[in-house]
Design a protein around this nucleic acid. Structure first.
Lengths: 254, 254
DNA sequence: CTAGTATAGTGGTCGGACCTCTGACCTCAT
DNA sequence: ATGAGGTCAGAGGTCCGACCACTATACTAG
């Protein structure tokens, strides 16, 4: 535990403080229902100004991880009582709060959300959406063998899917998963990736959406999700078995 | 409306400032891509300290309504680029940002999310969940004719549904909709409500979930959603036609 | 004309003062 | 004893004014 590294981790002090406190809360160091140290003590022990601590606490309050009560203090809330979906992003940020079961739950939701999103996209996509998707797929056909490019294209495709639904709620959700993909993607976009399969799936999905055929789109996306989920869960189970993720995770041996 | 009530609404300055700026952004007074006044000017024109302005801006940044760039300023983001689902709560807070179309989109998502949630609940509910639901329904049978009680029971039922899914993501989502229900429910929980129908539906849904029968649960919840959505959209279309909600909404005549 | 440098404007941090709210304790008249 | 009211400590909320760090721009020297 090097305090220097942590303080340099994030350009903004308040973000660094928020990350630190978030970790302490999510890993149970600060138990549910307990009171955090007061702002003055926190600012002293973290060696930052109280304003930075306050901004950090604000962020945790926004995530509904804590409840700040005037005159009393800040209290740790039950995470399951939160309504901040972005929390899953935070949970995936610490090795100790990632579990295979959590991933399974996230993927379970993603599946249903994505299936419905592509159906909506097939019904509501605009001509502009179609053109953009076509350009993306052409680019994939050219440079898609490069993992970094493939990831970037998947990210763009995901974002485009959200827009094409014509539903703001689905757009928010796909935006969230797009960000997760961008952040976690590098973990499994490697040279072993099946480039031809991915390109083929994209083309099929595109064709279905362009044709306005939600049934076909549904069929294709299910196949894509089967493949994606299997790959992720395989890796997750392996990591958990090796103790690299989960409540008692230790650093990788490198 | 009543200025006194508003001034008491937000005990915290930073929240009041955030609400004000949020309104200005969502109604387009501050256009997408434009730069907000700098923090010093904002604090002067709003007659609050710069720290309060900063905390407000932080909140808007969490909601991904603005992007704060060190050395440059704060810029309004495209709302559709956000991934903060809680934004729908903010959108429903200002008469001018509520539209029948937005409600339709929200209900479209709620339907699919809820259907899947009850299916999961039917598969994963614990005995404790069953007991709590049974108690709720008994209470509804007794006092459910009172609109305030009926709303409270629906709220509890909704929260319970989220827990019963056994999926953290669905729990976050149901928590969000539970909060929306609690806030907006009073609008259409009135004496005209069909008490017997509601109680009957709850009993059917409960029976299906207790029996672990996702198919039956699916059927019941669809019926409930049909009814609920029809009522909401009828009201929404009426309000929009009368110009009480929507981009050019005016205060009700009363 | 280019490269490097001042500078102004913006957000980021600081510290230290004071206000307001809450809960616990204390006092005192009943 | 008991309850109403006052007092006080400790918590978050707000304020002020100063300074630091980053960015874009304009300017200057080569």
């Amino acid at each position: 535990m090097n305090a220097n590294l942590e303080s340099l981790a994030s350009p903004r002090r308040s973000d660094a403080v928020a990350d630190r406190l978030r970790g302490l809360i999510l890993t149970g160091v600060y138990a549910v229902g307990s009171r955090l140290p007061n702002e003055r003590d926190l600012s002293e022990s973290l060696a930052v100004n109280r304003a930075s601590v306050r901004e950090a606490l604000k962020r945790l309050e926004f995530l509904e991880l804590i409840e700040v009560r005037h005159g009393q203090g800040s209290f740790v809330r039950e995470i399951r009582a939160s309504s901040a979906l972005q929390l899953i992003e935070d949970l995936l940020q610490d090795r100790r709060t990632i579990t295979a079961e959590l991933l399974r739950q996230i993927l379970e939701f993603r599946r249903h959300m994505t299936v419905h999103a592509v159906e909506l996209a097939a019904c509501n996509r605009s001509e502009a959406d179609v053109d953009r998707a076509r350009a993306l797929i052409e680019r994939e056909a050219c440079d898609g063998r490069e993992p970094a490019v493939a990831l970037e294209i998947d990210v763009e495709m995901n974002a485009l899917l959200g827009e094409a639904t014509g539903n703001l709620v689905y757009q928010f959700l796909t935006n969230l998963f797009t960000r997760l993909l961008r952040k976690l993607g590098p973990l499994y976009y490697n040279e072993q990736r099946d480039f031809a399969r991915s390109l083929g799936n994209h083309r099929e999905l595109f064709a279905a959406i362009e044709a306005g055929d939600p049934i076909a789109a549904h069929r294709v996306i299910e196949e894509m999700l089967d493949y994606s989920e299997a790959a992720i869960m395989l890796e997750a189970n392996r990591l958990e078995a090796e103790g690299l993720i989960g409540p008692a995770a230790r650093a990788p041996s490198t």
